[in-house]
Design a protein around this nucleic acid. Structure first.
Lengths: 211, 211
DNA sequence: CGAACGCTTGAGCAAATTCAAGTGCGGTGG
DNA sequence: CCACCGCACTTGAATTTGCTCAAGCGTTCG
């Protein structure tokens, strides 16, 4: 089969503006802890970039069960939707600063933004493997490895989110999260400097637990 | 805060070509049952549109556990990756025809393709809720509703995939899938015309089971 | 200083998995 | 055309994992 020539999208000079909208000197919009950024059913006409703090994107069942589909840390872009309406909720975990950027239709994306969306897709698909096929210990290990890497690969870092958030991200209850943390601590694999500050003592052991 | 003007990407005349590459008269490439379409680690330089048949996209753990992140039915586009390398496997479920389309970098997408990718993202995130927070009955019900809708909303339709595939999509074992099918059948909610042909007798009941 | 909230820990339980037989359908060959 | 074979699926029993319910701890904040 013959491969046709690549498809090329060419930008107008708006491109430069697009990049600037995120790096502009204007201050980010502030959100306090647990403040809603958007809700399911709302009009989806913006993208967001995390300046500082952390964000959870989630969906709810009628009876209140919650699944967090992603956390977003500084530098990351979120808010992608297939049509004009949000299918998810998003809110700030702690005090958070976001840069807002308008979006209209799908074609009106810069290459970097499309790339962000694709990274988000791949990450979500990878997360599905964790939630669908790994046990509690593997899920927590994978989570810790992921967060450590996303925070720059340091062995000590802060968990911006609560145990409840972690459970709702990994499809576990808060009690199971707590028990696994305790077990990893007992095995000398991690150390809880404080409730929300974690130190990875045996990175190799943690990685092998996450498969 | 002032909202900057929308970003607009303007296409060259290549745009028309892009649409044509999928609808061209040349025959689709054929894949036999279980034939690999791409593998993890391979170079990702194409997109695929299903002409007929069905495709599974999945990931494996070292010990062979598998998570299918998506099924793709006729009309759907798949093969999106964040960088130049595939993070997943894809293969044909039965005899399948695919139209191939080259892709290079993320910016080189038509609006329709970007839209496809975003739909894929939303669908994956929604699937995460099913796998992370719903029980076996709810998962199967949600799966059947989803497949029925994607096949045009008919009450009778074929399941292109095996029970093993369904289990690996929903994060369940094949035995649990089978037991739930039997239970739904005993309750008169579904009827198995044959092993792979299913009729939904009580669509309302099924939908309420899927939450 | 006290209350509230987030977290931890324990005991019992339920849901889904594992292991182990069977069953039946579809395909192949006599 | 029928019988047989193999594989996918079904069903059952025992086991395990994670959940529910409940109590206690400790930190933080008013």
């Amino acid at each position: 089969m013959t491969i046709p020539a690549p498809i090329v999208l060419v930008a107008r000079s708006d491109y430069a503006d697009a990049a600037e909208q995120f790096t502009a000197v204007q201050p980010p919009r502030l959100y306090s802890a647990d403040e809603e950024i958007y809700a399911q059913g709302e009009r989806a006409d913006r993208l967001y970039r995390v300046e500082f703090g952390a964000v959870r994107v989630y969906r709810l069942l009628a009876d209140g069960r919650r699944q967090i589909s992603s956390f977003h840390l500084p530098g990351e872009v979120f808010g992608f939707e297939a049509d004009a309406v949000h299918h998810f909720f998003a809110d700030a975990i702690g005090l958070t600063g976001l840069r807002l950027m308008p979006r209209a239709r799908a074609g009106e994306f810069t290459p970097e933004i499309v790339e962000s969306a694709l990274r988000c897709l791949v990450r979500t698909q990878e997360h599905l493997l964790v939630v669908g096929r790994q046990n509690a210990v593997e899920r927590i290990a994978a989570f810790l490895v992921e967060i450590a890497e996303r925070q720059g690969g340091l062995e000590q870092f802060d968990l911006p989110m609560s145990r409840t958030d972690i459970g709702d991200y990994l499809g576990l209850t808060i009690e199971t999260v707590s028990r696994v943390f305790s077990r990893l601590r007992a095995q000398g694999i991690i150390k809880l400097v404080s409730l929300r500050t974690l130190k990875i003592l045996k990175p190799g052991a943690l990685k092998s637990l996450s498969e």
